[in-house]
Amino acid sequence: MEAVLAKYENQINVFSEFLEDLPDTDEPVWVLGECYNAKTEKTELLSDVHSRLWFTYRKKFSPIGGTGPSSDAGWGCMLRCGQMILAQALVCSQLGRAWRWRAEGGQPEEYHRILHCFLDRKDSCYSIHQMAQMGVGEGKSVGEWYGPNTVAQVLKKLALFDDWNSLAVYVSMDNTVVIEDISKPCGWQEPFTSRETPEQACSHTDGNRATTCPHSHSDWRPLLLVIPLRMGINRINPVYIQALKECFKMPQSCGVLGGKPNLAYYFIGFVGEELIYLDPHTTQSAGEAEAGSGVDDQSYHCLRSPRRMKITNLDPSVALTHVVVLFKEIQMKRNLRMFELVENHPPHWPPFVPPTKPEVQTTGAGMSLPTRQIQ
């Protein structure tokens, strides 16, 4: 089986369209809300890209579910991209967007705790083991290819078991982000509008501003907002291209989950008409994670130049992601023409039920070859 998967991976490396070197251009380069000049700020730009946690195919980890696959090569690329997006949200909430990784070490304790959440071990909160088995509850057999929305649903459920980060995950429906529904998993229960901070909302119910408001910023749980979209039928509609670019300019951006048919990439920015992405289609050994000591964190950072692809080659099925650390950051551009932002839960929708811890599926760990073309 590993020989078959390696064959397909080699085909990907030969035939995939990517551009390795950064262009020599005066056009701004945007990476997750930060703007760079490729000519004068190349070092800073590469440092930013290299600091993103990079999750790829791994092999030789303990079998998923005890009897399942010991490698995700050929089927786990969308799961790995989901890990990268969630890791970026955790980095922003725990370390801040300005944090940079240094190859020589000396990273804060929070960085190491975040990294250990994603190691390929069954006891790591966001490991490939946990994601694959949680996917069984979404109708996916272990070894089956996922789409962006399914990965988002898996992350939403797994986040409920992460007591350290206390990160909430909200997945929008029907291209609509409902502010009222976002507030519930984040700990804010009173009526409000997106133009108010929690403190302002408290002032409506208690005229005494000296009174301590129970819903302060410290009570607002960090939120990963995931917006699955379909931006065309067979290929991306050109009307969405500029709006997609604007999303990468937003300070709260955690990137975009998408790619080409059966090929998942983690898009982190753009330059001109090209998207910048991290590619999970590299198989590395997971042996150092199982050893439990001296994890080689350099293998979790992509130290080469970021890859690029033309925006017009993007598959129209994507998921936009944003991290909301403070309530006031819930403000979003309303003219993106990609999704709708509304204050209240639509009355014709089913009632919104905040997610609760599901029962973890431990069966179905047998290998299921993807029904689509293997990526």
Rank of each mutant, 00 (worst) to 15 (best):
I12A: 03
N13R: 13
V14W: 08
L19A: 13
L22P: 02
P23W: 01
P23F: 00
D24N: 09
D26L: 10
C35P: 00
C35G: 00
E41L: 00
K42F: 09
K42P: 04
T43F: 11
E44S: 11
R58D: 07
K59V: 08
K59F: 09
F61G: 07
F61E: 01
P63F: 03
G65Q: 02
G65S: 03
A73L: 14
W75M: 01
R80I: 00
M84L: 08
L86F: 08
L86W: 03
A98W: 05
W99D: 04
W99V: 06
W101K: 02
R102F: 08
Q107H: 07
H116P: 09
F118S: 07
Y126I: 06
Q130M: 06
M131E: 03
M131T: 02
G135H: 08
G137Y: 03
E138F: 13
Q153M: 15
V154S: 04
K157C: 10
W164A: 15
W164P: 07
T176V: 05
I179F: 15
S183G: 10
W188G: 12
D206W: 14
D206C: 14
G207T: 09
H215C: 12
D219C: 14
R221Y: 03
L223K: 02
R230Q: 15
I233Y: 12
R235E: 14
K245T: 05
E246G: 11
M250T: 14
S253C: 13
C254F: 08
V256M: 08
G259M: 03
K260D: 10
Y265H: 11
G269P: 02
V271M: 05
T282H: 11
A286F: 01
A291D: 13
V295H: 09
D297E: 09
S299Q: 13
C302M: 15
M309L: 10
S317W: 12
V318D: 06
V323M: 10
K328M: 09
K328V: 09
M332T: 10
N335L: 05
L341K: 06
N344K: 15
H348V: 13
P350G: 04
P350F: 10
P350S: 10
P355F: 00
V360C: 11
Q361I: 14
A365C: 12
S368N: 14
I374C: 14
